[in-house]
């Protein structure tokens, strides 16, 4: 898995490539918490190139969302494949995160 980081108008956009599973989630957790600990309060996670997510990945996203909520920040997810979005629905995570179909729409959420 790879995490690419971009900045746009004070928003941090993290693009995930590959698989977010038990083995790769710690790496993503480290990355997203580095961003939050640096004071970033607006985070977009771009799922366009993510092929796989398991509960381990969902766990990291929830932890980050909780942390951002505590500090008046916000996390928006975007560009999910249909079968990945379905996992968010099954997990009841669609009510926890704004999910948009593109990065442009995600940035508009702030």
């Amino acid at each position: 898995m790879e995490v690419l980081e971009k900045r746009q108008d004070g928003i941090c956009i993290l693009e995930l490539l590959g698989r977010l599973d038990s083995n790769t989630s710690p790496e993503f957790e480290k990355k997203i918490f580095e961003v939050i600990d640096d004071g970033t309060r607006s985070v977009v996670v771009n799922f366009a190139s993510l092929d796989y997510i398991s509960s381990a990945g969902l766990r990291v996203l929830l932890k980050a969302a909780k942390e951002l909520k505590r500090s008046d920040g916000k996390i928006v997810l975007c560009s999910m494949k249909d079968y990945i979005k379905e996992v968010f629905e099954i997990a009841g995570f669609v009510s926890l995160f704004p999910i948009t179909s593109s990065v442009v729409d995600a940035v508009e959420e702030f």
């Binding site: 969902l58 929830l62 969302a65 909780k66 909520k69 996992v87 099954i90 926890l96």
Partner: peptide, 24 residues
């Protein structure tokens, strides 16, 4: 079953993996 209705602050992910498995 995990509680899928509560707000983000109270949400936890115990048994989430098993829940996903059952559903798919």
């Amino acid at each position: 079953e995990p509680d899928c209705e509560c707000p983000v602050e109270e949400r936890n992910v115990g048994n989430l993996g098993i829940h996903l498995c059952k559903k798919v």
